[in-house]
């Protein structure tokens, strides 16, 4: 009698997906078009979607990184920045920009807005969905553009590509070094935890729930369940019927979450270098604690924000210095899979 329950789950997930799509449809009015250059998008372009708020300092390197990888067009939603983010993005020739003053949390942490843009512009494209503090690296990324990766995924019949967020941190206190816009943040955030990750398989959405790393070690050692989720599926061959569920951690329909092999083999995967811990994080944590826009029950994370605001040293003797993607691959943090 397993079949009915399986069908039932499938049906419920289908409803859930349609509900998300409908939410995105309703929230489309929250978006104000600022600069629409989407007419420039070519059918073969790889697109990048992001919601940003006061990320001016990160954007020059962010755009630089993804342009080098061959992203054809960027679609941004600006949520009430007051640091010149919107003005900066408007000037970029390959960026389309929308703005909104509505709640990030109420829009499922920005996902509703992006879902709507993906419905409209993402269909048929390989789409990256990112945060401004995420830099994607994947096997051979220095010599092979994203188009090579997506062609490989196409040829192996994959429609999605998984990457784990790797929290990068500096050697001293977070505030010791001041990041200057345009520089590679990894010059400052040169360290990571290489082997303390915890994985659970989510039975319903069939995605892996990865936690661990420096944040679990430093801030959630007594309450690991609450440690931030690190698994993501940021690159998807988009169809207008798809919808991310929570951030890019999981997606519907559920087979897109199968970015891992469960019979012992390894699928090709990447790493999102997470540049959260630049000096700006201290100020931001104070602000986020008050805004309560980042977690469903934000008060549970007050201590977390306080710990970051206290400007801690995350580095230990056992931290690993970041060298290159080959190192991440050899350590088993990401995999070439069968791609050679």
């Amino acid at each position: 009698m397993r079949m009915p329950s399986k069908l039932w789950t499938a049906y419920r997930l289908r409803l859930k997906r349609r509900r998300y799509l409908f939410r995105a449809f309703r929230k489309r009015r929250q978006l104000t078009e600022v600069e629409n250059r989407t007419a420039d998008i070519l059918p073969s372009d790889i697109l990048a979607f992001a919601t940003v708020r006061n990320e001016l300092i990160r954007l020059p390197h962010f755009l630089d990184h993804y342009r080098k990888l061959g992203v054809g067009h960027f679609l941004f939603v600006d949520n009430q920045s007051d640091d010149g983010t919107a003005e900066y993005l408007r000037q970029q020739p390959d960026v389309s920009l929308w703005s909104t003053g509505h709640s990030y949390k109420a829009a499922r942490f920005g996902v509703d807005w992006l879902t709507w843009l993906q419905v409209k512009y993402g269909h048929g494209h390989w789409c990256l969905t990112l945060d401004a503090d995420e830099l994607l690296v994947y096997p051979y990324y220095e010599s092979r553009p994203l188009a090579a990766l997506t062609a490989w995924l196409d040829s192996t019949g994959e429609r999605s590509f998984g990457a784990m967020m790797l929290d990068m941190y500096p050697e001293g206190r977070l505030d010791d070094q001041t990041y200057v816009a345009g520089e590679d943040p990894i010059d400052i955030l040169g360290w990571f935890d290489s082997g303390n990750y915890i994985i659970h398989r989510q039975p319903e959405l069939q995605n892996l729930w990865v936690q661990g790393g420096v944040r679990a070690r430093s801030f959630f050692a007594n309450n690991p369940r609450r440690a931030p989720t690190l698994s993501k599926t940021p690159l998807v061959k988009w169809n207008r019927r798809f919808a991310y569920v929570s951030s890019t951690h999981s997606i519907l329909p559920p087979d897109l979450n199968h970015v891992y092999d469960d019979t012992g083999g390894e699928k090709t995967s990447g790493i999102l270098l997470h540049t959260k811990f630049l000096h700006t994080v201290i100020e931001k944590s104070r602000e986020e604690k008050l805004r309560k826009e980042h977690f469903a029950v934000s008060s549970l994370y007050d201590e977390y924000y306080d710990s970051i605001a206290a400007d801690p040293v995350l580095w230990t003797e056992k931290s690993t210095r970041y060298r290159n993607w080959r190192q991440l691959e050899a350590m088993g943090l990401m995999s070439k899979g069968g791609w050679l």
Binding site: Y260, D261, D262, E266, L333
Partner: peptide, 20 residues
Amino acid sequence: AVERRKKGRPGLYMHSRFPK
């Protein structure tokens, strides 16, 4: 490469290798 794709690295659990 084929071996890596099919059998993976024994004892490694990560976000693209999570054997049943």
